[in-house]
Design a protein around this nucleic acid. Structure first.
Lengths: 248, 248
DNA sequence: CAGTGGTCTAGACCACGAG
DNA sequence: TCGTGGTCTAGACCACTGT
């Protein structure tokens, strides 16, 4: 085990250690292998034990390792599902081995209206950008998405690349970073028009997802309503029981 | 602000601080109120700043507070959805303001078979306990559940109380603690028989959930297949984007 | 019993936000 | 410029596991 390379510009030591451990986990270790002890890792990478623990805490939350007090830290069984993370449609599809794409159906600037205005925490009369897209995976429709963004976040002259992540474009041009989203997932059956857009028979079952995305300050950035084809899409998630909680 | 009471037997300081902060958040503070600084909290509760930070880290993950570097820590807007947590059906329903119940349809000891045996990581010939229940909310069917437990976890003479949480019963009688579960959520339409059991018309849309539950060591404890009525059930979840990640 | 992870302390310096 | 949260250190003691 070699000492970690010199700390790069602005990259925390914990992040370097995390990358190193991830590499170890992804190659050369099998489930239930024992990792070095926290004290050994601290010594080997010239960091404090607390730093090691913060990194292992996150890997544990992500389901990559498990820890047994008095025994050690061990590699987890690979899981079908990653821990729930906030990902864009594009990232989501790529992680499933599919090629994401988009077809613009509509893009317009309109008044928010009551529902969208309320969700975004702005005046119903304020302008929002409405983007309607059919999102594809391997060139076949997967999802019908209606996305609403506050107008002031999207300059009139901004050119939206349909295939790039909307988040990435906003994150790049502005200082807008999506950090949290509330989702409500329901089941529904598709109307004839929606079924047609998704290339499935009418009344096919589908996920209906409503999402409101927020930045670090809790400001709503995005409201989206999506319909996912039930025959192609599934949610896979790993959930954890947190440690001590006040009595249920 | 008063100093925290003397540490109780076995309860970590961080847990006492957490409870105190939760009480403050639940009564007397409104969204975007500023909390005391980490250093003030550390002083007021006679703990180190690191302990305060560990508590705030968790409250932040749970969506109760947000932090802005250089500015402070603030109360979050209340969310429709709690952060994803591993809860039993009973806990889930109670948190929605509904009264949970169960009807045993079937309970039997059978060989695991290929699929269940594989999911639980045991021999297909090993005995499993199969529990088939209709789970109710406010006395109306909500979910049809097929649950399989390794036979060695459930003694022959164990009496299962249909309305109590299965986890609580296992956790009490044995040292079996569910800490993680992998779920796959699909949409489907109900067969006539299932629709009848759930008191809905045939071909109604529904969630089909497959779950495998694990203990801290990664041993499978439970495999369950559930059908949730689409007209009554929805998933509400808050998802976070983790800090730095390796390039997507 | 020795060794592990779990909790905690009392500092330190840095990066960022606001006045 | 000053105060905030973000990162990190070098210790300490406790609770638990396994021999």
């Amino acid at each position: 085990m070699t000492a970690i390379e010199a700390q790069q510009r602005g990259v925390p030591k914990s992040e370097l250690l995390r990358r190193h451990l991830l590499e170890m986990l992804n190659s050369g270790m099998v489930p239930h292998d024992k990792l070095s002890t926290e004290r050994e890792l601290a010594g080997a990478f010239s960091v404090s034990r607390l730093t090691v623990r913060r990194v292992l805490d996150r890997l544990e939350r992500e389901g990559r390792v498990y820890r047994i007090q008095g025994a050690g830290t061990f590699v987890s069984e690979p899981r079908i599902a990653k821990s729930v993370e906030l990902t864009s449609f594009s990232e989501d599809m790529r992680s499933r081995g599919l090629v994401p794409g988009s077809l613009f159906v509509e893009i317009e600037r309109i008044p928010a209206g009551a529902e969208v205005g309320y969700a975004l925490g702005i005046s119903p009369a304020a302008t929002v950008v409405h983007i309607r897209r059919v999102r594809t995976a391997d060139a076949e429709p997967m999802c019908l998405e209606n996305c609403y963004l506050p107008g002031h976040l999207v300059p009139e002259d901004m050119v939206l690349a349909p295939n790039d992540s909307l988040y990435a474009q906003l994150s790049g041009s502005y200082n807008v970073h999506l950090t949290r989203a509330d989702q409500t997932i329901r089941v529904t059956v598709l109307s004839p028009a929606d079924a047609d857009a998704l290339h499935v028979p009418p009344l096919s079952p589908a996920f209906r997802v409503e999402r409101i995305g927020y930045d670090a300050r809790g400001q709503a950035i995005e409201q989206a309503q999506s319909l996912y084809r039930g025959d192609r899409y599934s949610y896979e998630l790993t959930i954890l029981r947190e440690a001590i909680t006040t009595a249920p």
